[in-house]
Design a binder for these strands. Sequence first.
DNA 1: GTCTATATTCAGATAGAC
DNA 2: GTCTATCTGAATATAGAC
Lengths: 196, 196
Amino acid sequence: MRTVNPEQHARKRAAILESAAVEFAEKGVDGASTAAICRRAGIGSGTLFHYFPTKNALFHALFADDLATNTEACRRALADRDPASGLDSLVAHLVSELGDPLVPGLAAAAMLQVNRDPKFAALMAADERQTLTTLTALLDRMAEDGADLPFPPARVARWVASIIDSLFLSAMEEDFDPESHLRELRRITAWLTGRA
Amino acid sequence: MRTVNPEQHARKRAAILESAAVEFAEKGVDGASTAAICRRAGIGSGTLFHYFPTKNALFHALFADDLATNTEACRRALADRDPASGLDSLVAHLVSELGDPLVPGLAAAAMLQVNRDPKFAALMAADERQTLTTLTALLDRMAEDGADLPFPPARVARWVASIIDSLFLSAMEEDFDPESHLRELRRITAWLTGRA
DNA sequence: GTCTATATTCAGATAGAC
DNA sequence: GTCTATCTGAATATAGAC
């Protein structure tokens, strides 16, 4: 009897997700066709629906996989003895996907999906909450250590998160320069976190 | 012979655009159906396609109308004798649509459309360029007047624009408070423009 | 109303593990 | 050799632009 090979299954699943990411980033959830995803992945349509029950589930999986790495980054940041250095590492992680050219398109697709798929909205909200809670906890500790925050910790946390999000919008521009953007982001974050 | 009544034509056109905005914001360009737009506007599909040749043209018109008001706001900001006050008025204008609940959805739809419709991309790029050029010119004058900018004027301009964009992302959150957000935005902008 | 596009299904074909 | 994971692609049904 033939048995299931988990490693092979995972590899193919990842390959399908990668093809799907390209299509979704380019055309959004409604604009992307399962046929195009299959063509790009080099599989028949039956195979796609063997791995994922619907097109929406495919989109969902794309983001769920990412949430796990975020959780881990938050855990590590909180474990850091120095809250400022924990915050820096968390910001670095949040920014780490900036180089991926698919990210702006996927972000736009996700924004639309939040209004339409409540389960997807819950996934995104949980991710957001986790990031904000972690940032706030770190900023609380920094404030206790005497940092001079321009706003209360929870509000600073929100601004840090917002400004990072806005970077992903900027990443769409033709003359985007990650190098100087990141340098400037660190300067702005330093001011926001009372380390000007 | 029956002649066209330009005023009535404009009124109906605006009504169609308003219905379309709701649908596009909720479902994106591909997810929105012309049938739903017609239903919402209380017109037949024939009428819709009398006013706009295609669904894409309808989406296009939604943004083109806005661009004119932006041009005017830029003109006024540059005409201000005091560059700092001109900058404040331009920022106020850019932020003025924050209360509109449709804006986040429309922004997401627009981001996706930029990857797909080159004409639409050109429209958005022109708008962006206009805003950045104006901000940069104002910041140049402020720097000449002795303002202590943290980065070169063109970079500060980009950050101001990015941070305003990020406000529109925040506006999607459930506990969004325009009041404190705007107050904090002014504080951040003040720092970025050398008026800390 | 017409005509095209497309998500999903299904009835098998293929082939690896025992 | 058998059993089942894996895959295929035509068929269906529905929706939606115009």
